[in-house]
Nucleic acid binder design. Sequence first.
DNA 1: GCAATATACTAGGACATCCAAGGGTTTGGA
DNA 2: TCCAAACCCTTGGATGTCCTAGTATATTGC
Lengths: 169, 169
Amino acid sequence: MGTPLPRDPIAEARRNWERHGWSDVAAPMAAITAIMRTQQILLARIENVLKPFGLTFARYELLALLSFARSGALPMNKASALLQVHPTSVTNAVDRLEKAALVTRSPHPTDGRTTLIELTAEGRTVSKRATAALNSEVFGQSGFSEDDVEELIRIFGIFRRNAGDFDDG
Amino acid sequence: MGTPLPRDPIAEARRNWERHGWSDVAAPMAAITAIMRTQQILLARIENVLKPFGLTFARYELLALLSFARSGALPMNKASALLQVHPTSVTNAVDRLEKAALVTRSPHPTDGRTTLIELTAEGRTVSKRATAALNSEVFGQSGFSEDDVEELIRIFGIFRRNAGDFDDG
DNA sequence: GCAATATACTAGGACATCCAAGGGTTTGGA
DNA sequence: TCCAAACCCTTGGATGTCCTAGTATATTGC
């Protein structure tokens, strides 16, 4: 996307904030902006690893979720809740995964409103291979120290709970 | 988007990773997934605050960048580099901001290839108001402790430099 | 038992991001 | 001097996300 900048643009933004008299919120602004940028970098790495499998991160997450379900099947609304994305995003992902023959839709046995998503044999295979690739090429080389990884898990765990993602602690 | 889950879905994913023998990368996987989710939550808060101004985060970032430029104007490629997004994303944002009369395009005085983006008076006003809103409603209530904010800035600063975003230290 | 309310999924629209390609402008080396 | 390579912006296409209905099925309450 380009050559490195001579200066950290987020540090510059922080200085701009301070210079304009917003010192009280300059640090959180910088932290939040850094989260945004880091997410963008990580997502690009992940998508790059998944591309050979014909997967995007959204579709991979759904496959992985199904692969951990006891029966290999989940209702769409359950998937939406667990992945914490809008139901229409799940519909979209399932449409494409179904077209690629990695999952199938089937009616819920007792609730006519509900659609079950189920992994196909190929879906399970692709999921396994994609996970192996992500483990070795992204998660295994995250660039974060072990201590920092635990810090991030702690900080964002608190944040997500406060944001209403889940109840336990 | 829904009621809180009974359990932290990312902590569950981490346990799944460990149960499948990927303990060595389970923690970074959890950290990266938490970054993704946190970004999503923060972006939603930001977009929500910006909506009354008719802005999205992408457009706001461009406005804010311009407001800090000495002359209030920047070449598009410069904006693309500083915001670290694809040039086509800048084209898209400028199209919409120009339609809203918040910025104007003008030819570069000496380089015929380059287009300058410049804030209009209204663009400057909207930028100021939107920044004030974000400062008070998002950055001022980030939910991160002061210490954690500094930790995040440190950790992601290292990460972004290693990812090639910038050169200094 | 039936109407009103709630829940589940999908269709269509608005935005953002990236990539690939195309057309115009500059620059630089033969 | 002049043409090829480099650079800048835009267009068109693929994806993903969310929101706002709209349709179908369940549940609840009177």
